[in-house]
Structure formats: structure tokens, C-alpha cells
Amino acid sequence: MKIAFYGSSLLSSYWNGAATYYRGLLRALAARGHDITFYEPDAYGRQENRDIEPPEWAKVVVWKATPEALREAAAEAAGADVVVKASGVGYEDDALLDAVLGAARADAVRIFWDVDAPATLAELREKPDHPSHRQLDKLDLVLTYGGGDPVVEAYRALGARACVPIYNALDPETHHPVPRDERFAASLGFLGNRLPDREARVEQFFLEPAARLPEASFLLGGSGWGDRPLPSNVRAIGHVGTRDHNAFNVTPKAVLNINRASMAEIGFSPPTRVFEAAGAGACLITDEWPGIDQFLKPGEEVVVARDGTDVLDIMAELSEERAAAIGAAGLARVLAEHTYEQRAVLVDALLANTLAKKRAGAAA
């Protein structure tokens, strides 16, 4: 099938947590024979901070962040069998959704792919007149990168015909074990941009334990932390490109995942960070959230912390040997059950079935 995909960025992970997700899924779909064009706006300095070049498995169209360029990019949806508008594109999202759905052929599969369902659903609940409400009945599918039954039920209640979670996963060709890199040496590493609904949890799970463990070293990667006062044993290194994620994950004794508050509350939303770290064979510590045991077994394949005190206790007891064993078990689990190739099988079947039903209905 010919797929037109409108998202934030395929080429840059700069202020773009969905990059790994897009790359893994679309690469796996291309391997199954789909012809993919990814449309991304030139916004937020992402084109100046690319960490991959345009890949062989997808055509990338970068459009200027102007109304005219938006209309031109959206008009190209007319040539696709499947049209996808993702959440969080970053420039006039509502206008882009309107334009893309307006350009799509009547027999095309129309999809809204929500990469931040808790935030989107909260906005829709707060704004009954939000433009997306009137678009839901024009969509054939809502796909989300997490959320489980609560998100599915919420979207169905708002009028979506069908909602299916397509969870984050591992691309073993991108994220895999590598040699240690002393640039990232630390007792505990955390990689995440500074965001309003994450900062308090970073304070609780990472910065407070660091302040109480002065003999240990802590590594903080991600954008936005430059003006934040930090304990003296926390080293902030700024944005870490995806090409360095493997080394960042395997070098510290353990790495920490901290979900945003909204994601932790709704659960069943493992971020790409979880699979990147496990795929590199890292010992992963994660904050607690509903559904973690659906993806990794607590205590054996991942370590779960309820709060900062748990992080302190874990780090005090974690030996290098146990850390290595947890990392090896997590790697084996994600390779067996959580790769993008496996996720693409589900997406492929959804697209084929939905397209067949639409065409059968049009012919009737």
C-alpha cells in the first residue's frame, strides 16, 4: 500500500520523543512491502539537529511551517491508499488534520495516530468544541502508542469507530548492546527532556536520590536542564542523539526510566526509552505504572521503583553482577516479544482488513 504519514519528524529526535517509534514501525512496515512517504514540518530546529539522513525505506518530504506549504503537503494525501495524521506534528495540527482528511480519497484508510493519548484525551475532554471532535467520525482507525483499555474506551466514548494500541517496541538493528563508553560513566543514568509534567517526578526519582547518595555519580541527558540547579554529583550533558543512546544505556551500572505524570497515571504506555534500554542490555529501573508486567517481569527483567526511597534502596543493594543479569534477561524478553517487526504484523493486518472493508462497502 502507498502510505502518506504526517508526523513531527522522522529525521530528527531533537525535542521529538516519537522519532524512535516512527523509525522502528515505518521501517518494519516498509520491509513488508509498503511504500511510505513521511511529511514533516521544518520546525523547532529539528532540521538543524538531524540524527539520521533520509532512509532508503521511506521518502521524506520536509515542508516549510507556513499555511501555503501545509496545504501543498496535505494535498499529496490524495495519492495514498492509507493516510495517517499523527498527534503532535508541531505546526497547526488541527488545520493539518482538516486538510489531510479533506484531501484523502474516499476509499483511502484514514488514521489518526496518537503518540500522546493522555494529553490528547485530556484536551478533548476539556474542550467540547475542539476541532478533533468533528473529525473522529471521518476516521477509520485511531491508533495509539499505548494506554491499554482505558485509552481505547475513552476514544470509543468520544466517537471513534475503532481504537487499537500499537505499543512502542525495539528495533534490534538500531538499539543493541555496544561496548561501554567512558563519556557516559555513572552509577545511574537518566535520559529525558525537561517537561512540565515530568520535572517533579525527575526531582523525586532522580535528583533527590542523587543528593542523598553523594558517593555515587549520576548522569543526566536531555534538553532543557541547563538552568536547573543540580546536586554536585549530577553531570548534565544536554541532548543525546539517538546514535549515542546505546552507549548511554550500557555504560552506567543502571539507567532510569521516569514516565510523565499523565503516562504513569493511565499506565500501559511504555515509552521508547524502556525498549531502547532493554534492547541495549542495560539494567533498567523504572517508576511504577499499571501494566509494566505486560512488557517486562519486575524483579527479573526490570527493577520497579515506587518512589525516590526505592531508588535509593535499589542503588544501595544493586551489584554489578545482578545489574548484568537483569540487563541480559530484559534483552532476551524484548527480542522475543517486543520488536517493531512484531508490531508491524499487527498494523499490516489492520490496514489490509480496513482497506478491504472500505472497498467492499463502496462496491456494494
Rank of each mutant, 00 (worst) to 15 (best):
I326M: 09
Y340V: 02
G238H: 06
V250E: 13
D93I: 03
R50P: 01
N193T: 14
E153N: 13
R183P: 15
I36H: 00
D137G: 12
E265C: 08
R156V: 08
L11G: 02
E173P: 13
R161M: 05
A58K: 01
D287F: 03
D310A: 13
G221R: 03
F112H: 13
I52N: 00
L10T: 02
A316H: 04
L191V: 13
E321F: 10
E203F: 12
E317C: 05
P231K: 13
P55I: 01
R359Q: 15
P177Q: 12
W57T: 01
D313M: 04
W289M: 09
L124C: 09
D171A: 06
E48I: 01
E199L: 07
N168F: 00
P252E: 11
I326W: 05
D149R: 08
G192E: 11
T309M: 07
R23Q: 05
A305V: 11
E40C: 03
H133Y: 05
V62N: 00
G45W: 06
L351C: 06
L25Q: 06
K2Q: 13
T37V: 10
R201F: 07
A19F: 03
G299P: 11
K253Y: 05
R228E: 15
D181F: 01
A254G: 09
P150Q: 11
A336M: 04
E72I: 08
G79E: 13
L141F: 07
S232D: 15
R125H: 15
R180L: 15
G222S: 12
G146K: 00
E68F: 08
V202M: 10
V83S: 04
R343A: 02
